[in-house]
Amino acid sequence: MNWVLVVLGGAVGAPLRYLTDRAVQARHASGFPWGTCAVNAAGSLLLGVVTGAVASDAASSYAHLLVGTGLCGALTTYSTFSYETLRLAESGQRLLAALNVTVSVLAALGAVTLGSALGGAVGG
């Protein structure tokens, strides 16, 4: 039944990404893909929290499949990140493309690290 949890999480995570991206891009009408960068950081934070909580026995492995693998996995995306970076580079905005890569990777890494600490603290 593990795959059912992943499917349910994915069915919620992907539309959540779509709606968040629309909301963020509507407020920041720049060429920079703030929406994707934001969902990737937010999903990484949440995955960190869930992983940290599971590691400290505050959450079950089922929670990790539903929220971590399913929801956070689908809430965040590598394909759209890649395509948006390509578009920035192709339209001559190479500096913004490089900035997108740097900010996205560092923000997601910082977010999982912070999330893991928070999730671990929940379990004491």
Binding site: C72, S79, T80
Partner: peptide, 19 residues
């Protein structure tokens, strides 16, 4: 695009793997 490929790829699991 948004659904299948967005759900298939994952930035959060990537960051967790690096961490």
């Amino acid at each position: 695009g948004v659904g299948v490929l967005g759900g298939f790829t994952s930035f959060s699991t990537y960051a967790m793997d690096v961490s």
